[in-house]
Amino acid sequence: MPETIKEQTVEQLGGPSSVLARQRRDHAEMDRLMDRYQALADGEDRERVLQETVQLVFSHAFAEETVLWPAVRRSVEDGHELTLRVEEEHQQINDLVADIERLSPGSPEREEKVRRVFALIRQDIRDEEDLVLPRLQESLPAAQLRRLGTAWDAVRRSAPTHPHPVIPRRPPGNAVLGVPLGLYDRMRDAFGLSASRAAVKKVLTGLAGVLVLVAAVAMRRKRR
């Protein structure tokens, strides 16, 4: 059985730019933020830490689903089963956080959902570091892990930072919808805007118009 990436050195993981090292750094930051939230009393600081946690978790998961899990499915013998397990965890986290964002801060129901989502995030981290990522490490050379890390980081920097039920868990659907929703989320984060279904609908309507236009241009070129 391959060794968990949790206890390996950065050099063993392929260097600081390796996707394995990048994943582990994000996981450590998630753990730190969740511990910080649980240590704080109710208030603005606690809510800010929760929002930072959500933003990191969702951008991280989107990069995994867009870049990393396809590589696992291509390279690891039972990659489909391994990635399906973490995708199911991601969907549960998505649903719980969507509920949390609709509930009032400090309410007992909301705190119970936060507790549950933190437990799921910690389980997801363990599944990735102990089961999925060691198998990828066995299958790919360090140079390829570093190339994956570069692609993963580029996607994470522009990924959605909040739950969206319309985003599929796998490419190409998640990659197509992730671009406009990532832009919307990051504007929302920057200006402190609350979630709005109407705003999301406008984003998706705009995206649909762009896709129709692109398809029409492609068809015209094909006929020539």
Rank of each mutant, 00 (worst) to 15 (best):
V132N: 05
E77N: 11
R116C: 06
D99K: 11
L136A: 07
R74M: 10
L148T: 06
T150Q: 14
R74Y: 01
P160H: 06
Q123R: 12
D78K: 11
D153V: 04
T161P: 03
R116F: 00
V76R: 07
R73H: 02
A119Y: 01
L120E: 06
F58N: 08
D127Q: 07
I93F: 03
N94D: 13
R85G: 01
W152S: 00
L56G: 03
V67L: 03
E109H: 08
S104V: 13
L133D: 02
H80Q: 14
Q51C: 01
V67E: 11
R146T: 09
H90K: 05
A143N: 11
D99E: 15
H60R: 08
Q92L: 10
P134D: 09
F58R: 08
G106C: 09
E88C: 03
V54C: 06
E128Q: 13
V117K: 01
L84E: 15
G149F: 09
Q123F: 05
E89G: 07
S104N: 05
L68N: 03
L136G: 04
A63R: 03
T161L: 01
E88N: 12
V49T: 15
R115E: 14
L56F: 06
L68R: 05
W152T: 00
V49Q: 07
N94H: 13
R156L: 05
F118N: 01
Q55N: 13
R156A: 14
R156C: 04
A142L: 08
P105K: 02
S139M: 10
I93Y: 00
E128W: 03
I93C: 01
R146L: 02
